[in-house]
Design a protein around this nucleic acid. Structure first.
Lengths: 193, 193
DNA sequence: CCTACCGATCGGTAGG
DNA sequence: CCTACCGATCGGTAGG
């Protein structure tokens, strides 16, 4: 348990970097932007990170880790396949659109191309593990007769619909994360009145 | 009708810029990258465009225009709502994943945030018009009893599934654009065996 | 469209 | 973590 008062400058930098990478993109964000955001001089972030790329790495891995844990914690619920699926939709969307890890997840989705090959491979491994959870959820839905297609393409199309919400969702908009999750479930699974 | 032999350097620049913006991102692409790609010196692109931003504008508007035309040309077909819908899916995916305008459409989707407010407003107007076509297609599907939800969120989720294909589709992969379009139609509309 | 160049800014570092 | 700085690179321009 960390005390809230104890300053953790490294974490501050990661948070600020996440926000800026999300808002302006990695390439358009300067070290000076990040230093300003945490009240440091331009050379000081390098006391905590060797390179700008290392900051991106920290942000992306944090995003991958958060969403993985959030979805895993509801994926193996012993309820019905449909309930588990809807809980996974909610968890994914909350990571992506909700307060805390929003910038981390968004940076993961949009700035990973700036990762060097070694780190990218690291991320891809985690992503494959993550997507396997979804594949299993789709398989269970199909076995229960709720969907007809549990192929790889179906999974990618579904995750696309989820991930693209970053582009249009507004926290002050008219629909909640909960509603979006339910509408997507309805779209994929089928109609109820 | 333009002769193929007649060199059009401006169009060459737009094409090269589109490819580079798509591959590396707008901010990470330099004028020198673009000049190299078309065999010019670093100052020469500015004979054709006033700023780097104007090149982005040209690429994005070309992308918006192509996809708009491609989908519009099949949207008002007088066939069944389902056939029209599937044709729209194919047209959108072909623009996004097919050879010609791929880089333009991808740049439109991912680099629009670097547009200045005036140009962005221009793009948003065109985008709204584009999305209205999809809204109408969904309305027709609902009227025909093929889907239950033709709301704005449903439309955005659907377009998300389409747009995200840029992230995972590989031209040399195992599925064709045609197949992806059909699987998405099946996912949304309903099962056939 | 090239040559030659400019001022600004960038990621990163040495030394404290 | 700051001060002071460096070499490299960037978008853009003047003059031809």
């Amino acid at each position: 348990m960390t005390l809230t008062e104890e300053p953790n400058r490294r974490a501050d930098i990661v948070r600020a970097a996440g926000r800026l990478f999300h808002q302006k993109g990695y390439a358009a964000t300067t070290i000076r932007d990040i230093a300003d955001a945490v009240g440091m001089r331009s050379g000081s972030p390098f006391y905590h990170f060797k390179t700008k790329h290392d900051m991106l790495r920290a942000v992306v891995l944090e995003g991958m880790d958060s969403i993985n844990q959030a979805v895993a914690s509801v994926a193996s619920s012993d309820e019905s396949p449909r309930a588990a699926f809807e809980a996974m939709l909610r968890a994914h969307l909350e990571q992506l659109l909700g307060g805390e890890g929003r910038d981390f997840a968004a940076t993961l989705l949009h700035e990973s191309r700036h990762l060097n090959p070694e780190v990218l491979a690291e991320v891809v491994t985690l992503k494959d593990r993550y997507e396997a959870m979804w594949q299993k959820a789709l398989k269970d839905l199909k076995r229960a007769g709720l969907i007809a297609d549990d192929s790889r393409v179906a999974r990618l199309l579904l995750l696309g619909a989820l991930n693209w919400t970053v582009q249009w969702y507004r926290p002050d908009g008219s629909e909640s994360v909960e509603q979006i999750a339910q509408q997507l479930a309805g779209l994929v699974i089928g109609r109820r009145t």
